[in-house]
Nucleic acid binder design. Structure first.
Lengths: 158, 158
DNA sequence: TATTGTTATACTCTATAACTATA
DNA sequence: TATAGTTATAGAGTATAACAATA
């Protein structure tokens, strides 16, 4: 068990309840990705998101982010470059690495997806009471803070 | 705009904040799916989840649930049946339909994924304060209730 | 004739293995 | 020699189109 973690006397009921209650939010979140499928496949969208979040990545980093091997990531980039969504050029520092960045069209696609995601969330939030919205936001922020701390810790550990 | 919905005077800031705060929860949720990848591909897992949630489905219903065409769903089922996770038999009522149900191994795989999901959530929940956990649960439940109502409404509309 | 499902074909995603180029 | 990336090959996922079987 990782240091400073573990099921710290958590009632099992709470975990089960959160897992059940979170499903609709996850489904609404994921639905927005669908509007990009006319232009790119789901793996291609994930690649664009990964590059967008980091600003730029090399091929191995992208493969790690996607949980695939570099070979697969390379082929994925072939198609994104061909589609004009991604830029792949040789690094000027170390000429055996490549630098992946979003092209304008790629960023535009991510913006479209993010906009659709907000619309989908707003659709539900609009039907909630003020108290529910406040609880949701503060609860998600508390979750995000702890999750972020753990991600940092993992980075140091690994 | 659908009747009784729409961005009902929602501050744009709130929507943006929720969209940003929800991302870590969605990521933690999705991470659990990874443990199934030794046995099945992501699309295969989605198919098992869909069948598991409905108890049984015919091929067209499964295709609808997955957002693919029946042809693709048919091929997907070929492999799940071959893997011993899914049962496909001709309906006794209408002999041109098939009835898809989980086999014991398929249900066991879903249970494993659900368990991993709860572990991943518990890992973060354990690092949160009591107030944060309460807010998260009540907020998610409020979201889920509204999302559920909208899903019902859509079913009648469609 | 309309509905349900399967099969043939082609393209994408992926891993394994073998390769080239750089450090 | 080790690292970064690409290419060849093969199996899985998908859509389009054509088909068979049932209602």
């Amino acid at each position: 068990m990782p240091i400073g973690r573990g099921p710290a006397n958590l009632p099992a009921d709470l975990v089960i309840a959160v897992a059940a209650a979170a499903r609709p939010l996850v489904m609404v979140w994921g639905r927005a990705d669908g509007i990009s499928q006319a232009q790119v496949s789901p793996p291609q969208l994930r690649a664009l998101v990964a590059v967008g979040q980091h600003g730029s990545l090399n091929l191995s980093q992208l493969a790690d982010e996607l949980g695939v091997i570099p070979s697969s990531a390379s082929r994925l980039c072939d198609r994104l470059v061909a589609a004009g969504l991604l830029d792949r050029r040789v690094s000027e520092q170390t000429r055996r690495e490549v630098v992946l960045t979003l092209r304008r069209e790629g960023q535009r696609l991510l913006d479209t997806v993010e906009h659709a995601r907000r619309d989908a969330l707003a659709d539900v939030l609009g039907g909630m009471r003020l108290g529910g919205r406040k609880a949701l936001l503060s609860g998600l922020e508390a979750f995000a803070e702890v999750a972020g701390q753990m991600a940092e810790q993992d980075q140091w550990t690994a």
